[in-house]
Amino acid sequence: MLKEYRNILVINLMHLGDLMLVTPVLRTLRANYPQARITLLADKKLRDLVEYNPHLDECLLLDKKGEDNHPLAFCKFIMKVRARHYDLVINLHRNERASALAAFSGGGQIVGYAKPGFSLLFDGVMANEHFIKHQVEAHFDVLRKFLGVEKIDDAGLEMTIPEAAQHKADRLWQETFTQEAKVVAFNIGASWLTKRWIKEYFAQCADRLIKRGYHVAFFGGPMDIDLVESCIDDMKERESDHLKVFTGKVSLGVLAGLLRRCCLFLTTDSGPMHVGVAMNVPIVTMFGSSPVTGFYPYDGKDVLVKTPEACHPCRIHECPKEGAEHMACMKNIPVETVMEYVDELLEKFGGAPAYKLPLHPGDYKCRVIDLGNGIAPS
């Protein structure tokens, strides 16, 4: 018999991808506590991802880089949290700011991941096991261990696009592409340099697709603009009218609205990759420094190409190797291999837009192509 909770706070203050990986927990909490008020505390800049999530009653937003980014403001924010008298607080990322907010939240029960020190004020602390299981499954373990939850309602990653953002995406698509256009999305940036496949390789893929009649659309945030421009400079088809650039020009909501119309997403391990999963677009991704087990695209139709390098997964943000060995993890994922799986998925799904593809509930383990041993583990 589950203990009754009436006022639940879930905390995740990390990046785009981390927040997307929390969404299955929100659905499961709603399934187990249908009468509870469920609030998500997240970074204000990511509000488009979660503000209209149907399993939430409220989003509490912290302006991490703005008005809440100094000690006095942060203390005031903690007091705002305490005033809401949550009887359950679940922290789903082990960073200092989230750990502090959970620890001093005044929650009746506080569980989840925590930094040492702050963990002393938690009722239950979980080690994050994303090296041996997917992050989504690790989050479910928090609910199982500390709340006794047995009913896991997993519909994969979810995002409800704000209506205004969807209208803007639809209008932008109609202004940019013909009705019959088959569009392959590219995301070449990532928060770590070691998560980025080689930009010249992306350029070669884009050239091949354009020559075959596909349209290529580059996405990414403002921080990716220079990288995308440099990649396009390496393209032979850079003057083609089948090449479009949305990098730094659209909100997260509009990004999602555009991705759902694409027929494939070629991407790094990044936040947009997880948005693509939620939009049901077939994905081909390349993993160098990231642990595959914890962060693979959570969708059975997707393909992940894993580096053959023995240093995987280093989880180092910048490659310490020099010369020819610098970024060897990504250099040794060949264009020919990646394009083999791009072609396979394009053929399998017929170039249909993602929103027309069927869902497959429960099938969330992507195919991993392990170049280190030449086999594709199940």
Score class of each variant (00 low, 15 high):
73 A>G: 07
73 A>L: 09
74 F>D: 07
75 C>I: 15
75 C>Q: 15
76 K>S: 13
77 F>R: 10
77 F>L: 08
77 F>C: 06
77 F>K: 10
78 I>G: 10
79 M>E: 15
79 M>P: 12
79 M>N: 15
80 K>M: 12
82 R>I: 08
82 R>F: 12
83 A>M: 11
84 R>K: 15
84 R>L: 14
85 H>M: 08
85 H>F: 12
85 H>W: 12
86 Y>A: 00
86 Y>W: 10
86 Y>R: 01
87 D>R: 09
87 D>K: 10
87 D>V: 02
88 L>T: 03
88 L>S: 07
89 V>Y: 00
89 V>K: 00
90 I>E: 00
91 N>R: 08
92 L>N: 02
93 H>P: 06
93 H>R: 09
93 H>Y: 13
94 R>T: 13
95 N>F: 09
95 N>K: 14
96 E>H: 14
96 E>W: 13
97 R>L: 14
98 A>F: 10
100 A>I: 10
100 A>P: 06
101 L>H: 05
101 L>A: 07
102 A>I: 01
102 A>Q: 09
102 A>S: 11
102 A>W: 01
103 A>M: 08
103 A>Q: 04
103 A>V: 09
104 F>S: 07
104 F>C: 09
104 F>E: 06
105 S>Y: 01
106 G>K: 06
106 G>T: 07
108 G>D: 12
109 Q>M: 15
111 V>G: 05
111 V>F: 06
111 V>Q: 02
112 G>W: 04
112 G>Y: 04
112 G>F: 02
112 G>T: 08
112 G>A: 09
112 G>N: 08
112 G>K: 01
113 Y>I: 08
114 A>L: 11
115 K>R: 14
115 K>D: 12
